[in-house]
Amino acid sequence: MSKSLLYLLFSIYATATIGYLLHLIWRRPIIAKGALALIAVGVFLQTGLLAHRWWLAGYLPVTNLFATLFFFSWALALIYLYFELRYRIRATGLFVMLLNLLLLGGALPRDTKISALIPALDTPLFSLHIIFSFIGYAFFAMAFSVGALYLCQSRLHSNRLPDLQTLRRINEEAIFLGFSLFTLCMIAGSIWAHIAWGHWFSWNIKSVWSVLVWMFYAGMCHAKFIRRWQGGVYAWLSIAGFGVVLFTYLGIGLLLESNHPLE
């Protein structure tokens, strides 16, 4: 993949983020519309790049840190588009796209080379496991951004930000959708573990933390029913949950050594 296209993509998302910031200051709908259009262009470009890499590799290339960061960023931008088009949550874009810039920024300096697929990963279960996992993570990232925005809004009560009720709805929806996809990721992973290692649950640290992520968000699917937790506590839980996600995705690989094929 050409690095210049990657930089172009990064600058499109960065301009959109600045657009959202300006919109927050000046409240011109045209600026928000421009930012949204830029994100749509970015997603279009990123989808093309991803499809091109897939075509070149012959398999979904998500086998190293560059590729997973790139895929994560794509999923997050796409999910943001879905929520934006559904709820018109403009200023939320600032929080989500900032996170997206961090993900894409993390991918930029890394090697974009596609290596041959090793037979251990040569199964559709691997692709399903990864696709569901990162789309799930992207929903959790969305929930994290919305949770952070909820906490800001509960202090500021600004009419420039979406109202608390909408933020709460989006947060609950993102958690539920993320949990559903992450569940499918866990199922695909378990079947894969069964045929690759001969047991469907593995005690390696990455698998254990994936179960923790799943348990945490299963819990969050219920926490919204507890009246006193709705809103604020839920927002904090979304933030904490994303901490668990980040540790599972990056922390284990960077801080501890693990034998998981993705690091």
Binding site: V208, L212, M215, F216, H222, I226
Partner: peptide
């Protein structure tokens, strides 16, 4: 009770979190 469920799930989560590091 859903509250019991949350308490049990949280206890299991915290124990496994700590345990995973002990394990490592």
């Amino acid at each position: 009770s859903l509250k019991l469920a949350i308490a049990l799930a949280s206890a299991a989560t915290l124990l496994i979190m700590g345990g995973s590091l002990v394990m490592h």
